[in-house]
Design a binder for these strands. Sequence first.
DNA 1: CGAGGGATTGATCAAGCTCAACGACAGTGG
DNA 2: CCACTGTCGTTGAGCTTGATCAATCCCTCG
Lengths: 229, 229
Amino acid sequence: MKILKPSPEIKARHLQSLEIFSDLDKTEILMLSEKASMRFWDKSEFLFRRDEAAEKLEILVEGTATVYSILNDGSQKVIHIVSPVTTVGEAACFLGRPFPANCQMTTDGATLCIPRNSLLEFSQQYPDISWKLIGGLYSRLREFKNTVENHSNKSAVSRLATYIIGEARHGKEFILPAKKNQVANFLGLRPESFSRAISQLSSDGAVEFDGNIVTVIDIHRLESFLFPE
Amino acid sequence: MKILKPSPEIKARHLQSLEIFSDLDKTEILMLSEKASMRFWDKSEFLFRRDEAAEKLEILVEGTATVYSILNDGSQKVIHIVSPVTTVGEAACFLGRPFPANCQMTTDGATLCIPRNSLLEFSQQYPDISWKLIGGLYSRLREFKNTVENHSNKSAVSRLATYIIGEARHGKEFILPAKKNQVANFLGLRPESFSRAISQLSSDGAVEFDGNIVTVIDIHRLESFLFPE
DNA sequence: CGAGGGATTGATCAAGCTCAACGACAGTGG
DNA sequence: CCACTGTCGTTGAGCTTGATCAATCCCTCG
């Protein structure tokens, strides 16, 4: 991991695209970005580990990362697949709690890093930041709710279908945000089952898989898989 | 559902026990409780329904309720089993979003009800309330994380074991917060499988089930079920 | 007493897991 | 340039687990 200090403008552009800072105007964003350093990560480095103190806020701006826990049988469970531009572990950072899970890069990438102190200063000056934080937490909560619901959708195919529909919301095509391996884990499936679910969906003409590129061919057919039986 | 206005003192006692209002002193709590009405519910009444506007904050003070979603196949998934004294749907209420799920009483019970306006007024006067809210959301998020992890613990017995260990944290004994039916659903199990898991754990001498009363007999034996195999 | 809901038990079935083998591909080093 | 290696994805075969279906039991309550 290397730390660099590129121009504030570059950093500001990333910060601007974050919902949580959307109430700050340009000069304020620039002030904040003064405090931010940019970090470049190699694949499989840890952004943070479980139980570490959350002394800074990392904002993923390039590459992908996964957030995962280690279960009691030693296996790992992918909780979240992170794509840019997103804050990671922001709640723990604001609250000063230790991180509840691990976060590891799955590709090379880069983050913006803001020290917790600067963050708290800013949120005191701009109380709306904490409302944005609440909003963000709330969406994350709803995501988790969806995950739980999806996991209790027993059929592997329907789990995959709901996932695809969710990801493809903005367009007919998207790129799997991680190795199929990881996506399978995120969906609570073994790689083999995931693979079979894929071939079922694509042999049915609902979607097309080309490597990590997923194309929705027939949305109605895809939706029909949501109803088991 | 009946609305009553008991003495502010009675209401205040309930409000006091909520983490979210723990920064308010007695006179402030009393002011808040002036705004609160007390509602008495019959079994299976709805505290709120999915997509309803969250115009008030309900605080369960007696009885139990479940929060659940309706899945696309028509079945229901229990997201949360609520016991007193707890706020329900507080995030939606603060943010003014519609409720993301249904909440229904599973017994007769009572709630304190605070209009959204009064709540927002108070949180403006006492900004720490929003930090408490964030803290509460954060714990809920961690709960969900645990649920997701638990659901990917494939074995029914280990799922039940982790649940029991979690519930019995404060003492060797606890009461199932709902019908076994509902608890099974919450754990992502069919009632039959749940029942079999129970008999496996109790025939192994790890726990004892007497109706809805669960007693942990041998914590180590119980923990040994966490490791599949 | 009978009715109805919940819980349990038994028998069968199917979906996904496991294990194993194989193919595709990238990176490495001779 | 070509073996060698390791990772990832796919495919096949058999097995295990929980779901399903059905019957029974046990309460509570009218």
